[in-house]
Simulated assay, not measured.
Amino acid sequence: MAGGRNTKMKVAAIGLGSMGYGMAQSLIRAGHDTYGYDIVPERMQSLVDEGGKSAELADIAPDLDAAVLIVLNAAQTEAVLVGDEGILSKLKKGAVVMSCATVAPDFARSMEAKCAEVGVHYVDAPISGGAIKAAQGQLSILSSATPAAYAAAEALLDATAETVFRLGDSAGAGSAMKAVNQMLAGIHIAAMGEAITFGMTQGVDPASFVEVISKCAGTSWMLENRAPHIVAGDYTPHSAINIWLKDLGIVLDIAKGAKFGAPITAAALQQYLAAAGTGLGMEDDAAVAKVYARNAGITLPGMD
């Protein structure tokens, strides 16, 4: 069916983590019949309680106008689409798949080709903005797709994004830009952790660090967003340490394929690996600062 701002669609939101759940909420709010799927049944029931629909995915797949995939990685994306219980063979011609995981550009192109073989549109649509913006329908989507796929997905994009960057007329360009973004974001968080703990060795307390540096040239969006978590001693995961093992790993794989050296990215990844190795993998990614703190023998707010 054709997309459009006033089109009511039957949508499966597959992957109801912090980002996926918020996107599903935004789809419901926009008036779409939204079916949520996750390995955690409580998340599915919670979405139903908020107005979502319920049905077995295999049963509803032939009637879907769209599937939004907000899963963890390429392996899960591939499993959902073409695995043993994959939905691609069940989707009707003209349906659209909007794939939001951080994946390598070549993988996005391969999924687009598989979708095209059965007459299904594919939008390479990595997302940025965090869980709060996902729930508000104000994400940035770094997308690339054919004009026909964009038309089929227009109502989905309107419901979930504040800004849609259209970066090319085939899959791959969106994922390439997401890799660039994740490289910078992961480095910036690690750099913030290094700077805030370095400041503490010089008598700069974390609250003063945030107050001053956020108004100076050394700031970044990630610093302003994550450093307050350290000040509060609150490491409730909005974006977990383990995410960066995956995303910076993808970035470095892409860099290796391009024969491109990325030493700063590699150094940042080592700090996340160190954090995960000491049991911090499921804490907020601001907890990378704990690695620096422990090495320096200092205590952050909320640290034992």
Rank of each mutant, 00 (worst) to 15 (best):
G4E: 02
R5M: 13
T7C: 06
M9E: 08
M9W: 09
A12T: 04
A13E: 08
A13P: 00
G15R: 07
S18F: 05
G22F: 00
Q25C: 13
R29A: 15
H32R: 07
G36R: 00
D38I: 00
P41K: 05
P41Y: 05
Q45F: 12
L47T: 00
V48F: 12
A61I: 11
V68D: 03
V71R: 03
A79Y: 01
V80W: 02
D84H: 12
L88H: 11
L88P: 09
M98W: 09
T102E: 02
A104S: 13
R109L: 05
E112F: 06
A125K: 06
I132R: 12
G137Y: 05
Q138C: 06
L157D: 00
L157G: 01
D158I: 02
G168K: 00
A171C: 13
S175A: 12
Q182I: 00
M183G: 04
I187C: 14
H188F: 03
H188M: 04
I189P: 04
A190I: 08
A195E: 00
F198Q: 09
T201H: 04
Q202H: 15
V204W: 06
F209R: 06
G218K: 10
S220I: 09
W221L: 15
R226Q: 10
H229K: 15
D234T: 03
T236E: 08
V251M: 05
T265F: 06
A266V: 11
Q270E: 15
Y272I: 01
M282H: 10
M282T: 15
D284L: 08
D285K: 03
K290S: 14
G297L: 11
I298N: 07
I298Y: 13
L300R: 01
G302D: 12
D304H: 10
